[in-house]
Computed example of a mutant assay.
Amino acid sequence: MIVACEIAFWVVIVLGLFTRYVLKQKKAGLFLLALTPIVDVVLLVVTSVDLYRGATATIPHALAAVYIGVSLAFGKSMIQWADEKFQQYVTKQGTPKPKLYGMEYAKYYAKSWFRHLFSYVIGAALLAGTIYFIDDAERTASLWQVLRLWTVVLGVDLLFTASYFLFPKKDKQGTVSKKDW
C-alpha cells in the first residue's frame, strides 16, 4: 500500500501539471495537485487499521510514518520542483534556476535541513505514538529500528549542513561568491 500511495502521489502530481499546462485548465490542475494530502491520509488510515487489527509492525509500516513526515514537510517544495521541471522539459517555458555556491548554497541547504527536521518530528511522533499505542516491544521492534536509523540520518545531514558553512561550495572555477566574504 505504501508503494501504491507513493505512485498515486506522483500520478496526481503529473496529472495536475499536465492538466494545468498542456490542457490549460489551471483550476482543474490545482484541484488535482491539492489531492496529494489525501493520499497521505489514505496511507495513514490503511497503516493504522492494519496495526490495530493485530499485525506486527514491519519496516513498511514504519516507512509509512516516514513518508507522511517527508510528504508534509517537503510536499510543497517537491510539487514546486516538479512544476518547474515540467515547465522546462515539457512545455519548454521555464528557465533553470541558477546554481548556488558559497553561503547562498549553505543557507539553502540549511533550510532543507530544517525541513528534514520538521519531517522527522512528524514521522517520529507518528512512530512513537504507534509504539505507545501498540505497547508491545516485540510487535514494534521495526518501528524502533527505523526511528533509530532516521535519527542517525538526521544527525549526518546536520553534519553535512554545517560543513557547507565551514567549507563553502565553490563554482567550477574554484571560487566562492565575493559577497560571502
Rank of each mutant, 00 (worst) to 15 (best):
V153G: 00
Y101H: 03
A28D: 04
I38N: 05
G123C: 11
V3Y: 08
P37I: 03
K172R: 15
L23M: 10
A110K: 08
T58P: 09
A57H: 03
T47G: 05
L127W: 14
V3L: 05
D171S: 08
A28S: 11
Y120N: 10
A110V: 05
Y89L: 07
R53N: 15
Q173R: 12
Y132P: 04
L149K: 12
L32K: 03
L154M: 13
I59Q: 02
G155F: 02
D180Y: 04
M103W: 10
V39S: 10
L147K: 07
W81S: 04
I59H: 02
Q145V: 06
K99Q: 15
K170R: 15
D40K: 14
P98D: 12
P60H: 12
K26C: 04
T140H: 13
W150S: 10
S71F: 04
V42E: 01
A57D: 03
S177V: 09
T130L: 09
Q88S: 08
L158P: 04
W81Q: 04
L33C: 09
L143Q: 12
I7E: 01
F9K: 10
V146T: 05
L33K: 11
D50E: 14
V152W: 11
L17S: 01
I13N: 09
H116L: 15
W150I: 04
T47P: 01
Y67C: 06
K26M: 08
Y67E: 08
I7V: 12
T58W: 14
S142H: 00
A65G: 08
V176N: 01
K26G: 07
K85P: 01
K26I: 06
S142F: 00
A128V: 07
K76V: 09
A28Q: 11
T19M: 09
L51E: 14
P98Q: 14
F165W: 05
L117Y: 01
G123Y: 08
S71D: 07
R139P: 08
I59S: 00
E138F: 02
D50I: 05
V11P: 00
V45G: 01
R53L: 14
S163W: 15
Q93E: 15
F9I: 09
T161I: 03
I59W: 08
K92C: 03
W181P: 00
V152S: 00
Y101C: 01
T130E: 12
A137P: 09
H61Q: 04
A4I: 11
L117K: 01
K99G: 05
Y67H: 06
K172Y: 13
S119F: 13
